[in-house]
Amino acid sequence: MQCETAVRPAVAGDVGELSALLAEAFVSNPVASWLIGGVAARYTTFLRVFEVELTQALSHGIVRVAGDGAGVAVWQPYPMVLETVTAHDRALLGAVGIYRRRFAHLRAARDEHRSAALRLPTGPDRPERPDQRAEATEVAVAAGEAGETTEVAGHELVWWAAAPWLRRRRIGAALLDDHQRRLDAAGLVGHTVTDEPYVRDLLARHGWRTPGPRHLSPAGPPLWSMRREPGAVRRGYGR
């Protein structure tokens, strides 16, 4: 039997190492490639971005580390207070430099996807086929505009990665299990956005649902907004 990976809270001294891990993990990511064409510029820009994201999350969110820095998960309670959002946005704009327009587009798309995920129907009668889920989400969004549903508070999985050379060792699964226990105990919804099918599938095996993909732009990569209800049952063995 494989031993469970230990998970601990991050501290300020972890920021440099974890920023490098995230930048390495995301340098070939579809959205990262869409945001910044050159690999060298992409890595250095994301290194700055992750330093901002981790520093912010240590003060206003939750950062969990797997093993001896083998993986990291960054969670953000939602909704954030306005003062925190404003300060965070200013810091990110400084980090992304000349790429701020595309990063702003990505932020708007993530906000839209979060709203879609938080309005997914709940309960035993939720649809299972992608075409049914998409239709149900459209209905739910329309109902929300009529005041019949509202977005719910929860925790957003903002960043989540294992060191690229340590993948398929259940590091990501250990990080998920660690925080999902806390979400279940508090009765909170989890939500995230991913652009990678294998991440979508791994989350699905941990009880996360999606209404289907939406493209970042007509020529951009697909994004899946995903939601997990408290106590959602795992559907298989995670990686």
Results as ranks from 00 to 15, higher is better:
M1C: 08
V7N: 04
A10V: 10
A12Q: 11
G13M: 05
G13C: 07
G13A: 12
G16R: 10
E17F: 01
L18G: 01
A20Y: 05
L21A: 08
L22K: 06
L22T: 02
A23E: 04
A23C: 03
F26Q: 00
S28D: 15
S28C: 06
N29A: 05
S33L: 12
W34N: 04
L35V: 07
G37H: 07
A41R: 12
F46D: 00
R48V: 03
R48H: 07
R48A: 08
V49M: 04
V49C: 08
E51Q: 14
E53V: 14
L54P: 02
T55E: 15
A57Q: 01
A57Y: 02
A57E: 02
H60F: 14
G61R: 00
V65H: 06
V65T: 04
A66W: 02
V72N: 01
W75E: 02
P77D: 04
P77M: 03
Y78W: 11
M80V: 15
T84C: 15
R90E: 15
R90M: 11
L93E: 15
L93F: 10
V96A: 02
L106M: 05
R107S: 07
A109N: 05
A109L: 11
S115V: 09
L118F: 07
T122I: 09
D125T: 09
E128D: 10
E128I: 06
D131L: 12
R133G: 09
T137S: 13
A142Q: 15
A142F: 14
G147Q: 10
H155R: 03
L157K: 02
A161L: 05
W165G: 03
R170I: 02
A173M: 05
A174V: 08
A174M: 04
L175P: 06
L176Q: 12
L176H: 13
D177T: 15
D177W: 10
D178W: 15
Q180H: 15
R181D: 14
L183D: 10
A186H: 13
G187T: 09
H191I: 14
H191V: 09
V193R: 03
P197Y: 05
V199K: 07
A204S: 14
G207F: 05
R209P: 00
G212C: 01
H215D: 13
L216E: 01
P218S: 07
P221R: 10
P222H: 10
P222L: 03
L223A: 01
M226R: 01
E229I: 04
P230A: 11
G231Y: 06
G238L: 05
G238A: 08
